[in-house]
């Protein structure tokens, strides 16, 4: 089982990513974030195996 989260400032993209992730067997998309700081906090509590990240985001890239 691969646990992963996705971070993107556009909710629409996260929706697409969720759709793709659900089609891949053995991959669990635990949560999606538009706010990278919240994603960071989440990671501190629950380390994951895979991060799906936007390459350019406001504020943080």
């Amino acid at each position: 089982m691969i646990n992963c989260i996705a971070v993107d400032d556009e909710p629409l993209s996260l929706q697409i990513i969720s759709g793709y992730a659900s089609q891949i067997q053995g991959m669990v998309l635990l949560k999606t974030f538009t706010n990278p700081l919240k994603a960071q906090n989440y990671l501190k509590k629950f380390p994951v195996d895979l991060l799906l990240l936007d390459i350019q985001m406001p504020d943080v890239s």
């Binding site: 556009e10 629409l12 993209s13 929706q15 697409i16 759709g19």
Partner: peptide, 10 residues
């Protein structure tokens, strides 16, 4: 265009 692409997919 990207947004529209996403809208089309869903």
């Amino acid at each position: 265009l990207n947004s529209i692409y996403s809208l089309a997919i869903i």
